[in-house]
């Protein structure tokens, strides 16, 4: 069976990333960033606190670095003219985008996988044997999240004509507003739409509020990983979710189980829907970009 047409492009992209030192610096950074046991999370999770480290590593530093490793992948080739080699090959432009996304994803996943192994060893030694199913589950969801981030960055890189613009859109819009700051931005958006003020320590049991919060790819990612960890239905960091549900502690995180205590929870707030949200982030921007990339002038 022949390899797909885009395979050599994917191999080139992965090779390019894995030969750069910046890619591998990601591994130790993620270990340092992710490792952070707390007494309360140990109390609830026991040895599985190690699995939570992966989520923390995947939450802020990972998306930033994955975007940094990807956002120039097409605009740079357009500016330098090397894209003429790829476009001159027997490939459709969609093939080129697929090769870019998959190759860069592999290139970004490998240092993350290394960091995961190190976190697993450190956590395993210090806190005992964790659930391998949860560990692998959270790892795989993070791999999916990386592919989604690469897909978004590639899409932006494919439709822009300037590096400055793609930087602004990805880091100012996608990363800062949608990923890092969505807890604030999303709640403001909810208040603006509904007119309801929100006390972050006692959020209302309104499905719309939680649905808005959940469209952030970062919060969708944490909703799925919190589900695997079994800490509660929320897009917040697992430590905060545990604190909200822990007797006697008050934290400003939005947790479905706390807000809807006793009331029926809308079906669309089920954790599995967050997986759909994440997949849509992986597909829709790239599909839109592909539409334009296929029709535009690239030289």
């Amino acid at each position: 069976m022949a390899l797909p047409r885009w395979f050599p492009v994917a191999r080139k992209e992965a090779t390019t990333l894995l030969r750069s030192k910046g890619t591998w610096i990601l591994a130790p950074l993620l270990v340092v960033w992710g490792y952070g046991p707390t007494y309360i999370s140990w109390d609830i999770l026991g040895p599985d606190v190690t699995v939570g480290f992966i989520q923390v590593a995947g939450s802020t530093l990972l998306p930033l670095c994955v975007l940094l490793l990807t956002y120039r992948s097409i605009i740079q080739e357009r500016t330098s003219g090397s894209l003429k080699f790829l476009l001159g090959l027997p490939l459709t432009r969609t093939d080129i985008l697929i090769g870019k996304v998959l190759g860069r994803s592999v290139g970004a996943v490998l240092p993350f996988a290394l960091a995961t192994v190190v976190l697993g060893v450190i956590g395993g030694v210090k806190f005992g044997l964790f659930s391998p199913v949860r560990f692998i589950g959270v790892f795989l969801v993070t791999v999916l999240y990386i592919a989604v981030l690469v897909s978004v960055a590639t899409a932006a890189s494919a439709v822009t004509t300037s590096t400055v613009r793609v930087t602004a859109v990805l880091f100012g819009g996608f990363f800062l507003l949608l990923t890092l700051g969505w807890k604030i931005v999303g709640v403001r958006l909810y208040s603006a739409v509904t007119g309801n003020p929100v006390n972050p320590f006692e959020p209302p049991a309104d499905g719309l509020l939680f649905a808005i919060l959940r469209i952030s790819p970062g919060r969708a990612y944490r909703t799925i990983t919190n589900w695997i960890l079994g800490v509660g239905n929320s897009g917040g960091q697992y430590t905060s979710v545990i604190e909200v549900l822990y007797p006697g502690i008050s934290t400003n995180e939005y947790v479905v189980d706390a807000a809807f205590s006793g009331q029926p929870v809308p079906a669309y707030l089920h954790e599995s829907i967050a997986l759909v949200v994440l997949l849509l982030w992986g597909v829709i921007p790239l599909a839109l970009a592909s539409y334009r990339f296929n029709r535009g002038d690239l030289a």
């Binding site: 390899l3 492009v9 090779t15």
Partner: peptide
């Protein structure tokens, strides 16, 4: 092509393999 740059981190062999394999 005219006015192009090659891939700076890839060897000459890798450049050719990209075309040969595609």
């Amino acid at each position: 092509p005219d006015r192009f740059e090659t891939y700076e981190s890839l060897s000459a062999r890798r450049h050719l393999e990209l075309v040969i394999d595609t």
